[in-house]
Nucleic acid binder design. Structure first.
Length: 389
DNA sequence: GCAAATGTCGCCGTTTGA
DNA sequence: CGGATCAAACGGCGACAT
């Protein structure tokens, strides 16, 4: 329709998990706080009515930082960093466990508040969305300000918004003025505002591609925009090279996708210590079955069957392997998943200690479920080929 | 002795069926 | 009958994202 003059917003909640925690523990405002760790201790109430919080220095384990407040980031820690490493940089920073139920709650609140103003929303995870403003009558700046106010009123949280003619540019510019930012970018601003940035700011250029570009003397978007297309093609292939070139020129025609179905559902876990396939066989087996049960529960809760069962292993040396198996019929029950996952497991070398195990179900099809509470089950009606021998 | 959990997508080699 | 070929499915893997 209006493909030529779209107005696309990208909204990103500021330090989302940490900010939600600060609503609960306002006394932490202004302090370096990080979220992460599986067995991080909840704060405990003390005799004088104040709370005692865990510090990064108290942490032992293999967790990573999920979110850090801006105060913590100033001390050099950032999301994805191992907590043990972060503890060396900021031992006094407060450490809180993640509370996904709370984050999901606030996620729903902020998305609903945006939807009341602009309903064409693409979900991009728990803390960000794209919004297609094209068909709304209002002026862009007024709209963006209204959305920011609505989010704050609904949640008490701040967000950053970028608005531009497409998703690529909006994603970049929502980040330009964080936190509590608002950046509106037109085609004429690309050279001035986008080209000086690192190619890493382009969503889709990760560490590998950036490294390869660097080796070609390309570090900024401007350099990428100017790069010889033949050279790019030689190193990245036709399709990726064309995309790189378009991206550097701010060209992106992807629509805002307002609904989608999941492609796979998975569960994985990193062990507290690396487990030996033989010595820790029973522990591994229990974990493995537990993952299958949890994936099965997820499938049934969400109303899906899956036909492709897969496993993921991470070895002591951090190498990762996957195996999968496609069944003749989609399944959701834990036994069928466990059986197929077990078959996958036999195809993988087990000569080294393991650090992680995961189970995934893909090739999903929706399944009509009975109302919760009924016990009707079709599982087991058809005898499955059993190769447990 | 650093490196979570969950999910999507694209590419490539192989298999399979026509 | 053998070969060429083509598409679709599958399986593995890597890159990237939040």
């Amino acid at each position: 329709m209006n493909a030529a003059l779209r107005r696309i917003a990208h909204l990103d909640m500021d330090a989302f998990y940490a900010s939600v925690e600060l609503l609960r523990y306002p006394e932490l405002c202004g302090m370096p706080v990080v979220i992460g760790g599986r067995r991080t201790l909840e704060p405990v109430m003390q005799g004088d009515g104040s709370r005692r919080f865990a510090r990064l220095r108290d942490y032992a384990g293999r967790g990573v930082i999920t979110t850090a407040t801006y105060e913590a980031r100033r001390l050099g820690v950032s999301s994805g960093m191992g907590l043990m490493k972060a503890a060396r940089l900021a031992p006094d920073a407060i450490l809180l466990p993640a509370d996904f139920d709370a984050y999901r709650h606030y996620s729903r609140l902020f998305k609903a508040s945006v939807a009341a103003i602009a309903p064409r929303i693409e979900d991009r995870g728990i803390d960000e969305i794209y919004i297609d403003l094209s068909d709304l009558p209002d002026d862009t700046l007024g709209l963006a300000k209204r959305i920011k106010r609505a989010v704050r009123e609904a949640t008490g949280l701040s967000c950053s918004i970028g608005v531009s003619p497409n998703k690529l540019l909006s994603k970049i510019c929502s980040d330009l003025d964080k936190p509590d930012g608002l950046t509106i970018l037109g085609r004429d601003d690309i050279a001035h505002r986008i080209w000086p940035l690192s190619v890493r700011k382009i969503n889709g250029i990760g560490p590998k591609a950036a490294e390869k570009l660097a080796s070609l003397g390309i570090a900024t978007v401007a350099e990428l925009a100017q790069a010889d297309t033949t050279l790019l093609q030689q190193h990245f292939g036709r399709s990726f090279a064309a995309w790189l070139h378009a991206a550097a020129h701010g060209i992106d025609d992807r629509p805002v996708v307002t609904s989608s179905e999941p492609r796979s559902i998975s569960r994985e876990t990193t062990f507290e210590r690396d487990l030996h396939p033989v010595h820790d066989r029973s522990a591994l087996s229990e974990i493995f079955t537990g993952l299958c049960v949890r994936v099965s529960e997820d499938l049934q809760r969400k109303g899906y069957l899956g036909r492709t069962i897969g496993i993921k292993l991470r070895y002591q040396d951090f190498r990762t392997v996957t195996r999968d198996l496609t069944l003749p019929e989609p399944v959701a029950d834990p036994a069928a998943i466990r059986r197929a996952a077990g078959e996958c497991l036999r195809r993988v070398p087990l000569d080294q200690r393991l650090r992680l195990l995961g189970v995934r179900v893909g090739a999903l099809s929706p399944c009509m479920r009975d109302a919760p509470g009924t016990t009707t089950s079709r599982q087991g009606e058809l005898p499955l080929i059993s190769s447990t021998g």
